[in-house]
Design a protein around this nucleic acid. Structure first.
Lengths: 187, 187
DNA sequence: ATTGACCTACCAAACGTTAGGTAGGACATA
DNA sequence: TATGTCCTACCTAACGTTTGGTAGGTCAAT
């Protein structure tokens, strides 16, 4: 159970934080979700800040793997870009949850520094993947790829947030369609 | 001081909630900001839920007035639309704060129902104003105005959130520029 | 004499965190 | 083979603090 419990804590903490944020993540509920006692979490993580940093780090690591896998499953860069919104859709499918790092971006004033750093890393991973794909697909010039990638990332984050506030995943889909129609996302 | 205190509470609560969210809004800090005692807030608002609902309601009311004023100060609908991002820029100028309703959208799982309703009303106000302007400026057909308005609102919210996470208001400006370059926002 | 605005003084519940302890496995030494 | 030491993984119980909220008083203005 050694490594297993730590992994279970990370997984459960991610689910809680995607629904209730850093401030809404508490040791008692987290422990209950894992099936242990609150104090036992301290055997695996020295503090709430360290736990949250580990969760956020794992979150962007998982996302990086997922994005690479998505690119591999598809014939070309354009097709991979077309599937990018699906990555953010999955959080909404999971009980109307939000991207962990969108939630933590809102909470940034109350976040320990070690957590903030991981939140920024998540954005960096997304922007880098998008920029690479935009260039490979020949959609934008290399010197303008990062700006466009950031715009796509920000817009998709906003669409997810708005859909969450209405608990309406079809709103997310129509927002993505609108981004395509307007020319922000490649059609 | 009668009406004055109530207004002061609303104003201070808005500032706090835009920086720390609904969960980070507490009666002691709020009272201290106003210069009264925590218990005295209950003389004006029966509960935290009622207070937050009043704050959110006042927030969209103020926004509606501000948007109308913005439209009036400018010769035509296209010029008004061009200034829309400025409304969201002001929160960032105010100590890197976030739109109250973006924060509360993230927190939607833990929000009292009466607060949720006001959060949705804020989005409705923005979308209605944008849709009206888009039609008046002849940028989109009336039957497609609302979809485009929603896309703009979501994208601008996302840009503000991303800029906040980096505490970088110039990032907000470049995101807005990218939206224009990509065709989401009218140039 | 009543009301409005605010106060002091609490409370129960929940928070992150700590102290100290228990059960059981690993492992080198005697 | 048995003993002593150390480890991991978890526990109970409590710590001080903060939370939203309540009861009842004071006091100037009407």
């Amino acid at each position: 159970m050694s490594t297993n419990s730590k992994e279970a804590i990370l997984a459960a903490a991610r689910q809680i934080a995607q629904a209730h944020g850093y401030s809404g993540l508490n040791f008692r509920d987290l422990a209950a979700a894992v099936g242990i006692k609150a104090a036992s979490i301290y055997h695996h993580f020295p503090s709430k800040a360290d736990l949250a940093a580990a969760v956020a780090k794992r979150y962007w690591e998982d996302t990086a793997v997922e994005l690479e896998a998505m690119a591999d499953q598809v014939p070309n860069a354009a097709a991979a870009l077309r599937r990018y919104p699906q990555a953010f859709r999955r959080a909404l499918e999971n009980d109307n949850r939000l991207c962990l790092c969108s939630f933590m971006s809102a909470e940034v004033d109350d976040l320990p520094d070690i957590v903030k750093a991981e939140v920024r890393a998540f954005a960096d991973v997304n922007v880098a993947w998008l920029a690479k794909g935009l260039v490979a697909a020949g959609i934008v010039a290399p010197d303008k790829a990062e700006a466009r990638a950031r715009a796509i990332f920000a817009a998709i984050s906003g669409a997810q947030l708005m859909a969450r506030s209405r608990a309406d995943i079809t709103l997310y889909d129509t927002l993505v369609d609108s981004y395509r129609a307007a020319g922000l996302l490649p059609a």
